[in-house]
């Protein structure tokens, strides 16, 4: 069963992403959530989700750090990582590239885009 991991320290963003992805759950996709970088990293290592929506700005371990650990240390290149950044906030695109993120999206996100992206990634 394919898995999607949602990582954000803000509970309402986690919930909104879960709600957006609910349609996929009915099709057999499992949506898991994590509220910090460390927990996210453990879940990614143990469960190898196909897709991760990962908030950049998190206390202690940032989304950049998590992404870097997954792509460059654990070498889990197949895990598709979407970095979530806040609209209006400076986003270091070069850093995003360096840590190997596959895509970045701004918050507030367009639910249609999130769902479309998830379907596309899961189809692979």
């Amino acid at each position: 069963m394919p898995k999607i991991l949602v990582v954000d320290d803000e509970p309402h963003i986690r919930y909104l992403l879960e709600l957006t992805l609910e349609e996929l759950e009915e099709e057999g996709v499992e949506v898991i959530t994590a509220d910090n970088g460390q927990a996210a990293l453990e879940i990614i290592r143990d469960e190898e989700p196909a897709l991760v929506f990962l908030d950049v700005m998190m206390p202690k371990m940032s989304g950049f750090d998590v992404c870097n650990a997954v792509k460059n240390e654990l070498e889990l290149g197949d895990v598709y990582i979407v970095l979530l950044t806040a609209k209006g906030q400076e986003f270091d695109k070069q850093r995003g590239q360096e840590v190997g993120a596959d895509l970045y999206m701004t918050k507030p996100f367009n639910p249609d885009d999130v769902l479309a992206k998830a379907r596309e990634v899961l189809k692979r």
Binding site: L16, P108, P111
Partner: peptide, 8 residues
């Protein structure tokens, strides 16, 4: 989410 859709 509907608001998000509008804003984006």
């Amino acid at each position: 989410l509907h608001k998000y859709r509008e804003i984006t």
